[in-house]
Design a protein around this nucleic acid. Structure first.
Lengths: 250, 250
DNA sequence: AACATTCGTGTCAATATACGAAACAAAAGT
DNA sequence: ACTTTTGTTTCGTATATTGACACGAATGTT
């Protein structure tokens, strides 16, 4: 009996999301139009969001997302403290490769970067902390995808967006790719999202052997030879295993 | 006509908050008891939170807050554009003191420097933008810590790393220090992280009075007399208050 | 200045919606 | 074997949420 959702709650959250995305404040009417909701409905939901502290309103009647969401988000992060637990392995990867190092978790059909260490080299591949990328064409994404494939495959079929000529857009090809990722324990993206970027990532296992994160490196493709790829893969796998082990005994 | 709130939405958000505070996952029954809600009600709200991506459930039926809230929070943070809003106050501090000026936010058990102005003087105390420092022994860190002490104290107990002979390594001493920081509205570090560096910082408050950042200066200790410290403290506090005020009316 | 649109906020009746109680199987404790 | 507690589902009902409409105040247009 899945599928039934409380519309009030989901509408309220979509308002919160809309406000978070809004660079400048926004009024009821425009907000209602954007979300295809009634003005009355939007107004009322905004009132309750204000009452519980997630939204504020300025003198010109504009509505804003408050910092409360940020605070809650921080709490979640702190409790899990994946970044804290990962930092030593990430630093290890950074020192070994000199490239940008990422820690990512699953977020719908995207990988969400929750921690990063900048490349120490001149040419940088910039992706901000808190940013995300499609799951089917970057290394961290593919590593996460491979181990959640049963729940994600179906949803992904119609969402294999093409980004470069290397991007996997056929589900059959992806099926095979997932098999090799699971077999090898590492995912490699050779310019499947950004043509000139190569990334390598491995899955991180929780205490109950769920894959909860992926750790990996990202580098300008021209910097990396095939031999380098093999070496870096081994290093990334080791770091991921190491991290998985520290998660076992928490 | 104020005060009427959509109960569905507010209950849903309280569930989200409860999950965020829960270090380990939690089941429906216990959650319902904690929040004084019906089991049916709690269950349903959880289903819709799952449907919209804010909550996940593991194999043992335990519910968790997902990273989505964190992501929304990050979005809010980014659109706030703290660096942009801070620049004038930072320049003011720079011109008044001639020393290095920092804008920092909380990042785990560290202060993360998100903006800086270099010292105009010959002798510089170098800390790069994007860099971080332990929270318990630099001024920006202590300013942030003091106003997040309830959530951070426990974690910090085993992480009071010693850097110099001035570093605070006892939680009892830190408790007192936090009290005086909150009382004075300013944090001072006299060589607690780098022996020869002195730093002064004050908290920056958001529209709803959360401390979301700290602004401060950092200087070679030999440059600074006790009188200077007092003067600079006042200047830093003023700059921080000024910044807080501009945040009020956005 | 007069007019026409927008805006944010209230009102209110209708009904769709979220609600609690009870029941369920499965698991955990005893 | 028995009892309690778990997560989940069903269901009839009441109530809380809803959308249409109204309103004055801004804002824009002529």
């Amino acid at each position: 009996m899945v599928g039934k959702v409380d519309s009030t709650l989901s509408k309220g959250l979509s308002i919160l999301e809309a406000l978070a995305a809004e660079p400048k404040g926004i009024g009821v009417s425009e907000l209602a139009r954007n979300l295809e909701l009634t003005k009355s409905n939007t107004f009322r939901l905004l009132q309750t969001l204000i009452a519980v502290g997630y939204v504020t309103q300025d003198a010109n009647k504009q509505y804003f997302a408050s910092m409360k969401t940020w605070k809650i988000g921080q709490m979640i992060m702190e409790k899990l403290d994946l970044p804290g637990l990962s930092i030593s392995q990430m630093q290890y990867l950074s020192s070994m490769t000199g490239e940008a190092v990422y820690l990512a978790v699953l977020d719908g059909l995207s990988t969400l970067y929750i921690e990063k260490i900048e490349s120490t080299k001149a040419v940088r591949t910039y992706t901000p902390k808190g940013g995300n990328a499609p799951i089917h064409c970057v290394a961290t994404g593919k590593a996460l995808l491979a181990f959640h494939y049963d729940t994600l495959r179906e949803k992904l079929i119609d969402n294999l967006t093409l980004y470069t000529d290397k991007t996997i857009t056929s589900i059959e090809v992806l099926d095979k790719e997932v098999d090799t990722i699971k077999a090898q324990g590492v995912a490699i993206d050779r310019g499947e999202y950004r043509a000139e970027v190569l990334s390598i990532a491995a899955p991180v296992f929780s205490a109950n052997n769920d894959v909860i994160a992926a750790i990996g490196v990202s580098a300008p493709a021209i910097n990396v030879s095939e031999d380098d790829i093999e070496n870096m893969s081994r290093t990334v796998i080791l770091a991921a295993q190491s991290l998985s082990n520290t998660l076992k005994d928490i």
